[in-house]
Every structure is written in structure tokens, then in C-alpha cells.
Amino acid sequence: MFLRNETFESFIKSYKIVTSLVIIHIFFYIWLYWFPFLGGEEIYALGVGNNILVASGDYWRLITPIFLHGGLTHMLFNSFSLVLFGPALETMLGRVKFVMAYLATGILANIAFYFLGSPGVLHLGASGAIFGLFGIYVYMVLFRKDLINRMNSQLIMTIVAIGVVMTFLNPGVNIIAHLFGLIAGAAIAPLFLNGVSLYTQRRPIHDDDIGFDPNRWAKRRQHKKNLIFYIVGGFAGMVLFFYLVSMFLF
């Protein structure tokens, strides 16, 4: 569910919304920080979240911060998270519902910050929407066990726990947006998961998959061992990634 085995080309074809969101992240990062003299400064000024300006009528600032980031590490971290945790939901929900859920959780997180956050603080980033995806997974783990298996349930709950802990440990992180993005995802999950079936990861079909293989059970046992290895390795890598982010982010 969270292990990516597609080629770059097949990933783009299979997960068009996730790919488009990552491209948007990269595009605005390059525009804002590499070409500020070509309108990047103006885009930042118009798009950054600011409660005072929202109160004065700039309501688009509840949406635009979702697509902007505070630097390269910030952008890469959110894009990396989206690539890992977005594809399964895009497949399960469908593209339209996935976009709606992603934007809804990000907007609700920014609305929560509008009412609870400091008026003068500038904020931007897709973290509220990313935590919204986590919230949908948490709802699955707690109330829709038919949609997620035990192994993935344990993995996602561990990642969410780490994410929440790192939210409080990292100075400058928008705690309100993270927490309310998570809550918003869990709150809207029943609406979006209605009629959804269990996720099945796409994989290419090869000619050698057809026919009887006398070693199929041995291969399955080896496959399980490899799967455990990749899960442990992936988890360790994410822990290291979170640690590095805690050192350099903000």
C-alpha cells in the first residue's frame, strides 16, 4: 500500500493527481526562490497565509498556502510524503474525490489556524493537507478495517505518531494546521470512503507470471521476508528523514 514498486513512467500514468500536485510544488518553489525577479516575490506576497489579510478579505489565502513552501527541504518533505501516502488514496477514492479530500483538509486546517493562530504569523505549506490524508488512514484503521490490512495499519499509526511528536518538537512548525488537518481528515473520511473497496496496488504483468511454478511457495516465503525487510528499512529511513528535517527545517 505504501511501498512503491512502479517505474517512474507507470507512476505518472497511474497517479495523475499526486504527480500533478508534486509538479505544482516544484513549479512554485522554483518560481518563488529561483526567479523572484520574474514575479516570484509577488506570488509569495499574494499567496502566503496571513490571518490579518484573510480578515480583511483575502479569502484565497485559505487555499493558496497549500501549494507554496518555505524552502527546498520543506517542499521536498511534503512532496515525498505525498508520493508515499497519496497513491493508495487516489486509487481508492478516485481522482475527483481525492482532490476534494486533499483540498478540504488543507483548507479546514488553514481555517482552524485563522481562528486559533497568531494574527501576524505568515504560514505556508501542504502539511495540513498531508496530515489530512493521515487522518483518513487513521479513520480506516479505527473504523474501516476492511479497507486496510494489519501490517499497513501498524505502519500508518506509527508514522502518524512520529509525525505528531515531531510537530511539537520542531520550532516554527504550524502545530494547529497539522493537528486540525489530521482531525479534518478523520472527520470527512466517512463521507469520502462510502462505497470504497480495498486498495490493490498496480503492478506490471510479465509472461513468466503465467503457468505453474513448482517453487511458488518458496518464492512467496522469500517475498514475505523481503517485504518485512523493505518495511523495516523504509521505516528506519523515514525516522532518519524526520530527524534530519528536525535539524534543518525552519
Rank of each mutant, 00 (worst) to 15 (best):
I52V: 15
G195Y: 00
W217E: 14
W31H: 08
F8C: 01
P214T: 07
T158Q: 00
G71H: 09
D213C: 07
T19V: 14
V232W: 09
I107K: 02
G40M: 03
G128L: 04
I148N: 02
L89M: 05
A129E: 06
I24L: 15
Q154L: 15
Y15D: 12
N50A: 11
E42D: 11
A109K: 05
G237S: 10
F67N: 10
K16N: 11
L193W: 05
V54F: 04
Y29F: 13
I176T: 14
E9C: 02
F229G: 14
G120Y: 12
D207Q: 11
I52E: 13
I183W: 03
M157W: 01
G237F: 10
F11T: 05
L133Q: 13
F143Y: 12
I176F: 07
H178S: 09
F180Y: 12
Y230N: 13
G40I: 04
R220T: 08
N174G: 08
G172N: 11
N152S: 15
L108E: 02
L191N: 01
A109G: 10
I24D: 07
T167M: 14
L169P: 02
H223C: 06
K145Q: 14
S246W: 01
M75W: 03
R150A: 15
L227G: 04
L179W: 01
D209H: 10
K16M: 12
I111Q: 04
F67A: 13
G132Q: 09
H123G: 08
I24M: 11
G211C: 10
E42K: 15
I228D: 08
V99Q: 04
D58M: 12
L53K: 15
V239Q: 10
H178C: 11
S246V: 00
F241H: 12
L82Q: 04
A184F: 08
D146R: 07
H25N: 13
N78V: 07
G86T: 05
I231F: 08
I156K: 02
K97V: 11
Q222G: 08
Q222L: 11
F113C: 09
Q201N: 05
W60R: 00
L240K: 08
K13G: 07
N152A: 15
I205H: 04
N50C: 12
A104P: 01
I17Q: 06
H223Y: 12
